[in-house]
Design a binder for these strands. Structure first.
Length: 337
DNA sequence: AACGCGGGGCT
DNA sequence: AGCCCAGCGTT
């Protein structure tokens, strides 16, 4: 993990903070390349603060939860304005995008302040160590209490940074969600769930609600200079501030071709069916039908918030993963893949 | 307290 | 193809 300090090294608060924001709801493997890209584009928190928001959003494109990127930028500006990162949990907690978990993680890892950051890994370890049978999310306060108790151990208080990171490593490599390696666990002897044979079943969770389906149609329109028609989404909400192909709203009922046609950016273009892209969001699953066309001559409606993006500049665009796939599907149908 | 918010990895 | 994973901000 490139954000980790080596033995005897001091962790860089910028690196710790950046990695912790990226790691919210996102796996280590996914974060790695983005972390390196951000350090190369924005070597310091001041450089990140000074960058235009679109550049930050474009660099974040594909990581998801785009409010994190906007808060990251605002937080960099607040930190730069006050001359550096605060070194206590309480002050960190007041910054944009920093909640109780991240405040404790940065305080502990970057500044060696006592306190246990409670993420999903730590909740899992604690639920097993103390055999907490109540299901999440109701058990969350009890799990936080258990984690805090661990942090009060004198050995933990002596090395808060090492303790926090060791706890993450334990959850990631030994006390895993499925098939935990209890035989290898340094805490196998005090672990109550291990004794009861219930480690693999914990933490229990309330069943979650079903994900509804939604449908939409998106239009890929290419002009004779290989420029693509895009538009910007509203700044807040789903995929807020990111770019997208123009298209219909997303609703529960599928769209007929005739209904969708009313939303086409050029009524007379030779539209062809390019196929469907399916994408699962947190709270619904989307089937997006792609229709593609090449329009010789100028585009009639690059107005209304829409703009043209040359195909070879697409990597600098703030295109979320869903829209990257939609573009790829449309281009393939046009024979431009 | 409940809800909105992406994407990738594993089986 | 389906299941699993999981912090912060807003309301």
């Amino acid at each position: 993990m490139p954000w980790r300090a080596g033995p005897g090294e001091r962790a860089d608060p910028y690196h710790v903070w950046l990695s912790e924001i990226m790691l919210q709801q996102t796996t280590v493997a996914t974060v790695g390349p983005y972390f390196r890209k951000f350090l190369s584009l924005f070597p310091t928190v001041a450089a990140l603060a000074a960058a235009p928001e679109e550049r930050v959003m474009a660099a974040w494109a594909g990581l998801g939860y785009y409010a994190r990127a906007r808060n990251l930028h605002r937080c960099a500006q607040a930190v730069t304005a006050r001359g550096g990162f605060p070194d206590t949990e309480e002050e960190l907690r007041t910054l944009p995008g920093i909640g109780s978990y991240t405040a404790r993680a940065v305080a502990a890892i970057a500044f060696d302040r006592p306190g246990v950051p409670v993420d999903g890994n730590v909740e899992r370890v604690c639920s097993r160590l103390f055999a907490i049978e109540a299901p999440l999310p109701a058990s969350r306060p009890r799990l936080a209490e258990a984690a805090a108790r661990l942090g009060e151990d004198p050995a933990a208080r002596a090395h808060p940074s090492d303790f926090a990171q060791a706890l993450f490593d334990l959850g990631a490599t030994i006390c895993t969600p499925r098939r935990p390696a209890c035989a290898l666990c340094p805490w196998r002897s005090p672990c109550r769930a291990r004794a009861a044979g219930t480690a693999e079943e914990l933490p229990r969770k309330l069943p979650r609600a079903a994900r509804p389906d939604r449908h939409g149609t998106a239009f890929l329109l290419l002009d004779d200079e290989n420029r693509l028609l895009l538009r910007r989404r509203p700044p807040r909400g789903l995929l807020g501030g990111m770019s997208e192909l123009p298209g219909t709203p997303w609703r529960e009922a599928p769209w007929t071709a005739e209904e969708a046609q009313a939303f086409a950016p050029a009524a007379t273009a030779p539209w062809q069916e390019a196929g469907d892209v399916r994408h699962v969001f947190t709270h619904f699953a989307l089937t997006l039908r792609i229709r593609a066309a090449r329009l010789p001559g100028g585009l009639p409606s690059a107005a209304g918030g829409a703009f043209l993006c040359p195909l070879d500049a697409l990597e600098n665009e703030a295109l979320p993963t869903l829209m990257r796939r939609a573009v790829a599907t449309g281009l393939a149908a046009l024979g431009d893949a």
